[in-house]
Design a binder for these strands. Structure first.
Length: 468
RNA sequence: GGCGACGUGGCCAAGUGGCAAGGCAAGGGUCUGCAAAACCCUGAUCGUGGGUUCGAAUCUCACCGUCGCCUCCA
């Protein structure tokens, strides 16, 4: 079995083969830290966390680099508005984002480089591009990339230079040779932070930092380059232009782009202002819920975010967890046939999970495989499986859930201090039920429900659990 | 205007040439004193109209609709 990944460059699913056997070099464009992160940002982080976890599960050693853009116009503007130092502002949002990533159970990247910490590499790269004629310093202290010099410019996004020029609304910058040339280096205006360079006191353009970080943290050629599909043009197009012009080698083998989170029919974005921050989401919902939403659909398609969808997803997550509940009180055991049926379903689910995930990370299909396993486990439990008989299936569910990055937190994580008292109430209620004191029995049950404890009666006794 | 993607049951969403996964909701049933949970059963011919093919949700053309990029953007 082989893994296939869709690459934006070829617009096809391609067989996944790494440069170095068994090792994956993955670069993902991170966020510009000028504001609170929203759940659209969480989506990209979740998608590439899932990709990374899956590749690891399939035996690869994954080196994942995700950058922070910590100096740019928006950061500077925002800092000025707030009367803050731009570097402090950036650092605060980085700290906050990393905490939220952890709360979402996203593994920290192998490296989180930052633009401000890569200046020597960035400057070296710009110098190299100038030497080769791919870039030129302008009279205003900026340095621009000479787009016309790059013959296959536009091949990632499928654009032609002529088309862009005719319909373009790019402001004309006097210092540029051509309107489509983009900045590698920007001279600082008064009051802006700057670094020394051969051309001016200034800062790097947005695209060059990623090229430089790739080079210093992963090498000249990488396996996977990822990010949101809104970055295809111009950001990734420009990255390819810079990196390949500089090294003379093809840059990334697989260009992987996730779809946008849709909110109210539009892309959730900072500029549109239609956003739900990660912070807000996490005060209301478990992090697994957002992950489940991502898993339920194809990573390349837009993801619909509505309150209704969140609710549905929460229920679906409850169902997944339902399989992890303990055996019924007084379970008599399945017998040989039942044990084998459950084992067979486990194997089948695992196989179809891998088959789906191998096919361009079909998480929705993988999730379906988990639900098949859930049904089999619940069936077995209903048929009287003991704790020991359920254990293997449940362990597999946890194993595959962990490949998705789902925590599947159940009662075990919750405080058990109340347990003896709840059990006491159940005991008393059992006496009442014997005497058919239904009103009192129901009162106890209802009151406990209000307190977040669900009672479930069965022939063999009454079980209880915290509401999910 | 240019480039690209998408339109599958009430909702979310896989499938991309050979009898339409999965989840949520809904209805019926089993269990229960009643519940709850779980289990069992029930539903779509795939935006519209042509074309290719023995056969299409899947390929092709047109049209309608939605979204993304073309300017900072995960």
């Amino acid at each position: 079995m082989a893994i296939k990944l869709y690459s934006t460059l070829s617009r096809k699913k391609e067989l996944f083969e790494t440069i170095e056997p068994g090792k994956v070099r993955m670069y993902v464009c991170g966020v510009t830290v000028y504001n609170k992160a929203h759940i659209g940002h969480a989506m990209f982080a979740l998608v590439f966390d899932i990709l990374r976890r899956y590749l690891t599960y399939r035996g690869y050693e994954v080196r994942q680099v995700i950058n922070f853009t910590d100096v740019d116009d928006k950061i500077i503007n925002r800092a000025n508005q707030m009367g803050m130092d731009p570097f402090v502002l950036a650092q605060n949002y980085i700290t906050e984002f990393q905490a939220q990533i952890a709360a979402l159970n996203i593994l920290p990247a192998t490296v989180n480089p930052r633009a401000t910490q890569e200046m020597p590499q960035i400057i070296r790269m710009i110098e190299g591009l100038i030497e080769k004629g791919y870039a030129y310093p302008a009279s205003n202290g900026d340095v621009y990339f000479r787009v016309n010099k790059d013959e296959d410019y536009g091949r990632l996004s499928g654009r032609k230079l002529e088309d862009m020029q005719s319909g373009s609304r790019i402001e004309i910058e006097e210092a540029k040779e051509s309107p489509l040339d983009f900045a590698l280096w920007k001279a600082a205006k008064a009051g802006e932070p700057f670094w020394e360079s051969p051309w001016s006191q200034g800062r790097p353009g947005w695209h060059i930092e990623c090229s430089a970080m790739n080079l210093s943290h992963l090498g000249e050629q990488i396996d996977i380059h990822g990010g949101g599909n809104d970055l295809i043009f111009p950001h990734h197009e420009n990255e390819i232009a810079q990196s390949e012009s500089y090294t003379g080698k093809s840059f990334a083998r697989y260009w992987v782009h996730n779809g946008m989170l849709q909110f109210g029919g539009e892309k959730m974005s900072k500029s549109l202002g239609n956003l739900v921050t990660i912070e807000e989401f996490l005060t209301k919902h478990d992090g697994d819920v957002l992950r489940m939403m991502v898993l339920n659909s194809g990573y390349r398609n837009p993801l619909t975010y509505t309150d209704e969808v969140v609710e549905q997803t929460e229920r679906a997550l409850d169902r997944l967890k339902s399989a992890l509940r303990p055996a019924l009180p007084g379970a008599k055991g399945l017998g040989e046939e039942g044990r084998q049926a459950l084992a067979r379903q486990g194997e089948a689910s695992k196989a179809s999970f891998i088959e789906a995930m191998d096919d361009d990370l079909n998480t929705s299909g993988g999730l379906a495989a988990l639900f098949e396993l859930v049904r089999a486990i619940n069936q077995a439990r209903a048929d009287g499986a003991t704790e020991a008989e359920l254990a293997a299936g449940q362990a597999l569910l946890r194993e595959l859930g962990a490949v998705f990055g789902l925590r599947l937190i159940t009662d075990e994580g919750k405080p058990q201090a109340a347990a003896p008292f709840i059990e006491l109430l159940i005991e008393i209620r059992a006496e009442m039920r014997k005497q058919k004191l239904w009103a009192m029995s129901d009162l106890i049950r209802n009151r406990l429900t209000e307190l977040g404890v669900t009672l479930e009666d069965s022939k063999e006794g009454t079980g209880w659990r915290y509401q999910e």
